[in-house]
């Protein structure tokens, strides 16, 4: 069945990108990750997540090209600020999430930018600010206007979008925009060597993702 979720499987992968989701607890990062799916057949409450998902490997089609993404979710870690440089290392795209109904999560973005600047391995890393839970607009609980979000993004030189993981508004666009931008920024990924950039060893030590032509297979 042809759909965005099931592209022709024989097509070559153009590139592999590492994306991070960061932002305060409760902004809906995990929901965004779950909702970033082209064809969800299940309602979220039908799915019982007993153990939190840490990261996903996911194929996405952007402009007729196939990209393989590893998308990392900080859920559960950010409260303790134990994110390490290894989490940031090698990431080409960062999705900074705040909750439009919680002003503080928006103001904290500044701290997340500081952390990102400290640990990020490339100055060119693509950033998008995502104002999540924009479905809360109608119920009058919005604390951050779209204008404020846009202005901040402009000041930080990043992309901006409002999303709702609940209604799926903008969710796919947020990821696609980041992928598109990374694809347009060859310095971020063309130096990648080896067969599986983005891969990491899961037992602490990260794999060399910026190796100098040494095949790691």
């Amino acid at each position: 069945m042809p759909s965005p979720a099931s592209p022709p499987t024989d097509q070559e992968i153009t590139a592999t990108f590492k994306l991070l989701l960061i932002g305060d607890s409760g902004t809906g990062k995990s929901s965004l990750l779950l909702r970033f799916t082209d064809d969800t057949w299940l309602q979220p409450d039908e799915v019982s997540a007993t153990i939190g998902v840490d990261f996903k490997v996911k194929i996405v089609n952007v402009e007729d090209k196939r990209y393989k993404l590893t998308i990392w979710d900080t859920a559960g870690q950010e409260r303790f600020r134990t994110l390490t440089s290894s989490y940031y290392r090698g990431a080409q795209g960062v999705i900074l999430v705040y909750d439009v109904s919680n002003r503080q999560t928006f103001e904290h973005l500044q701290l997340w930018f500081t952390e990102l600047d400290t640990y990020s391995s490339s100055r060119d890393v693509i950033k998008i600010i995502v104002g999540n839970k924009c479905d809360k607009d109608t119920s009058g609980v919005r604390e951050v206007s779209r204008k404020d979000g846009e202005a901040f993004a402009r000041r930080m030189g990043t992309l901006f979008i409002e999303t709702s993981a609940k209604t799926k508004t903008g969710v796919r666009d947020a990821f696609v925009e980041v992928v598109r931008k990374i694809a347009e920024t060859p310095s971020l990924w063309q130096k990648q060597q080896g067969p599986r950039p983005g891969a990491v060893l899961l037992n602490g030590e990260e794999e060399e993702v910026e190796s100098s032509g040494v095949c790691s297979c």
Binding site: D39, V47, V53, K58, K68
Partner: peptide, 27 residues
């Protein structure tokens, strides 16, 4: 892990042997 097309990894199960379980990346 990059051999997968789509897959989700849980966090390492604490207290045990750090096993990670695999899930569907979409649902």
């Amino acid at each position: 892990m990059m051999a997968f097309e789509n897959v989700g990894f849980t966090k390492a199960v604490p207290g045990g042997d750090d096993t990670r379980y695999l899930s569907c990346a979409d649902c």
